[in-house]
Design a protein around this nucleic acid. Structure first.
Ligand SMILES: [Mn+2]
Ligand SMILES: [Mn+2]
Ligand SMILES: [Zn+2]
Ligand SMILES: [Zn+2]
Lengths: 143, 143
DNA sequence: TTATTAAATAGGAATTATTCTTATTTGTCA
DNA sequence: TGACAAATAAGAATAATTCCTATTTAATAA
């Protein structure tokens, strides 16, 4: 555990800032998540983490990634009929999802970001998230 | 089956226009779907259909609703980490999803509908669907 | 530093949504 | 009416996610 002690300065600091207890599992999971620009699933992160921590449980990966998203360290992309995907990109952006291969492509859309919400949501609702979702076929799947 | 023979004129016509074989199951499932303005799940439709057709299988409801969506008779709202929801509303609209109770609220957003897609998608991609997704708390869940 | 304690974890079972398999039934169309 | 492809029922299989419980561990106060 000396290795862990020495490294993971950045991860350690992020957890501390979020008030999350610092555990070996969390440090490694956080580092793995930040290494994946491709919206990884729990399964992908679990596989990667097992290389450094063979006994880590799938439940821990789930719990940890969900607590990261609650803490604002990442976001969750629910659905697509498939497994939940996690997104380490912290800046505002949107997603195109390929209906054939499931690939997720990030894009920006400032015009949309600047749109006012419909007035229905002015009262009573709390809108926590606002995003554009495109779907269709990616260039690879378009033959 | 005389009842089915006589009624379901509208459903029968819709199936015919889509080139879908007309079966008792499809007629009843279609009618039920159109009765639900609240984005029903497969389970909800299955329960409703069983009242008229007790032996209908869950697999048939799945298969049928998916073929309806392929035929354009409805759309599928994948995800939310929960069960797939089906949407009989045929006009362009968008959704707010309550993170607490799961309720889905329709809304229109013409300004968004009129936005140009980012230029990334001009070449190579085929964008089949384009929508806004809001999430947060609905008035009921906001205490 | 050490003892205390609440939080985190491993491991596996349970749950739930969805898909698959196979034998049987049913529309469609000639 | 008869042939045949398509649709269905029933239940098994698969996969994602959550739950349960005994054990371990990080934070912190003495
Ligand atoms: Mn992203
Ligand atoms: Mn809708
Ligand atoms: Zn693709
Ligand atoms: Zn709600």
């Amino acid at each position: 555990m000396q290795l862990i002690e020495r490294a993971f300065h950045h991860e350690r600091e992020q957890l501390r800032q979020c008030g999350l207890k610092i555990t070996t599992q969390r440090l490694i999971i956080l580092k793995e998540l930040m290494n994946h620009a491709d919206h990884p699933t729990v399964h992908m992160i679990h596989e990667a983490v097992k290389k450094e921590l063979p006994a880590v449980s799938v439940d821990t990966v789930y719990r940890t990634l969900l607590s990261f998203s609650e803490a604002g360290l990442c976001t969750v992309l629910d659905g697509m009929g498939e497994a939940r995907r996690f997104d380490p990109k912290r800046t505002v952006h949107h997603h195109f999802i390929c209906n054939n291969c499931g690939k997720i492509v990030d894009f920006a859309c400032t015009e949309f970001d600047n749109l006012q919400l419909p007035s229905v949501f002015k009262k009573g609702f709390t809108v926590e998230n606002k995003s554009v979702r495109l779907s269709g076929l990616c260039p690879d799947c378009n033959k």
